[in-house]
């Protein structure tokens, strides 16, 4: 499917996880601690290249190409963070909590469709982006062709004259190698702000 096509896609037919599948993916992401064996240096190098290219695609608003990097069984999650006492026994992050992003691939298509409508006045003139990805670590998962990848990012945005936002964070991904390239299967985005210090997240991570 082409999310940016002029004709409105049938979003109902696009890939979507059930609640149970999304929960399973969320708990998998929460359990990712980088405990697998390090991937080989050649593979790490290819994975790093993948991240730099992905960042450049987002900077250049090449959303359709970026969409094609997402697996059909994508789970894409940015949970909320509360400030809690250390003694508090409740889990800090939970898939039952409100979130900023809690998405299947079909939901990403809706977001791309919104931008592609050319009716989003708050992205016209366009926002300028710089995405910096660093600290890439990749681990074997026990499943051939699937890798656990941890990374840090800085996402800088500027629009108009002086409207800017800088977000720093950390990502945990499950990547899948398909036909010699990578797809994002699961992505957890951890933003270390309990009060979001900007007005919106009109951006992908």
């Amino acid at each position: 499917m082409n999310a940016t096509a002029n004709k409105k896609p049938d979003y109902g037919s696009l890939p979507r996880l059930t609640m149970e599948q999304a929960r399973e993916a969320a708990y998998h992401l929460l359990a990712m601690k980088g405990e697998g064996a390090d991937v080989g240096i050649d593979l790490l190098h290819r994975i790093e290249r993948f991240y730099y290219k992905e960042a450049r695609m987002l900077d250049e608003e090449r959303y359709q190409e970026w969409y094609d990097l997402l697996a059909d069984d994508l789970f894409y999650w940015m949970p909320l963070t509360e400030s809690r006492f250390r003694r508090d026994p409740r889990p800090t992050l939970s898939p039952e909590h409100m979130a900023y992003f809690d998405e299947s691939k079909a939901d990403i298509a809706v977001r791309i469709g919104r931008i592609a409508s050319n009716l989003v006045w708050t992205e016209d003139p366009p926002t300028r982006h710089v995405y910096i990805v660093a600290g890439i670590e990749a681990f074997e998962t026990g499943v051939p062709g699937e890798y656990e990848v941890h990374s840090t990012f800085t996402q800088y945005r500027n629009r108009g004259e002086n409207d800017e936002a800088t977000l720093h964070g950390r990502r945990r991904d499950l990547l899948r190698e398909v036909d010699g390239s990578f797809q994002v299967v699961r992505r957890l985005i951890l933003l270390p702000q309990s009060v979001l210090q900007t007005k919106n997240l009109s951006v992908f991570f």
Binding site: A99, N200, L201
Partner: peptide, 30 residues
């Protein structure tokens, strides 16, 4: 619970800082 979860995702995806409708409003008010 399953319907509550649909409202959780639905309200988040429309009216939150990453919501496809709320994101339209902020710049106007600013």
């Amino acid at each position: 619970d399953e319907v509550k979860d649909r409202f959780r995702r639905g309200s988040m995806r429309t009216f939150s800082p990453a919501g496809i409708l709320e994101m339209d409003d902020g710049e106007n008010w600013e």
